[in-house]
Simulated scan of single mutants.
Amino acid sequence: MPVIKKGQYPVRYIEHMKGGQGRFEIEDILQTDEMHEKGRLFAIGTLEPGHSVGYHVHEEDMEICFFLEGEGIVQEQDGTEIKIGPGDTNIVDVGQGHMITNTGKTSLKYLAVIIYA
């Protein structure tokens, strides 16, 4: 089993992710084909202050976001906004939606896992 060292993960950037503000950085821990058809994302996501991942619904999968660093807000499907920080988890089940915004003064980093229902 290989060991991938910090700094060796492929990094990609998406502008205005899901209609959000600014840029979303994704460090792919696993590639989609390495997830054996069980999911499509296992990565560390980073949002700079004021940047966001726009509101979106998970139609055929679910997402777990475990926050590692920074401060932000998760907007849930009903419009409720919840402050989040290190150690918090946002679980978005099939058919539910969410939006993530960095409201802090430093990077908001989280482990994002998307698995198929």
Score class of each variant (00 low, 15 high):
K5G: 06
T106G: 11
E63C: 02
E25K: 15
R40N: 14
K105N: 08
M99W: 03
V53A: 15
R40A: 12
T89H: 14
Q21I: 08
K38T: 12
E15K: 03
Q75E: 15
D33N: 11
G45L: 12
Q96Y: 13
M99I: 05
A43Q: 11
D61V: 11
H98N: 09
T101H: 08
E76K: 07
I29F: 02
I84D: 06
E81W: 03
H36D: 11
L41I: 10
Y13M: 09
C65V: 07
V94Y: 04
Q31A: 13
K5R: 05
F66Y: 15
R40Q: 12
G39C: 09
I14N: 09
N102H: 01
I4S: 13
I100F: 13
I84K: 02
G85T: 14
E71R: 06
V94I: 10
G50D: 00
I26K: 06
Q96C: 03
T103I: 01
G79I: 05
F67K: 10
L30R: 13
E60G: 10
F67M: 11
I29S: 05
C65F: 04
H36Y: 04
E34N: 05
L47F: 10
I91F: 10
G72C: 09
G39R: 04
I82T: 15
I26C: 12
E63I: 01
K83Y: 08
G104T: 00
E27Y: 12
R40K: 07
D33L: 05
I82F: 05
Y9M: 05
D33Y: 13
G20F: 00
G54H: 01
E60I: 03
H56R: 10
Q77Y: 10
M17R: 10
I29Y: 04
T32Q: 06
G39A: 09
R23D: 02
H51Y: 09
I44G: 14
G22W: 03
E48L: 15
E25S: 13
F67W: 11
V74P: 01
E37G: 01
D61H: 06
K83I: 08
R40H: 10
H58A: 02
Q8D: 07
T46G: 14
E15D: 14
V92D: 03
G45E: 09
G97Y: 05
Q31S: 09
V57P: 11
Y13F: 15
N90P: 07
Y55D: 13
E63R: 02
I26A: 07
Q96V: 11
A43P: 09
R40T: 03
I82E: 09
E59A: 08
G50I: 00
L47C: 04
F67D: 06
V57Q: 04
K105H: 08
I91H: 07
V94K: 14
K105R: 04
I44N: 12
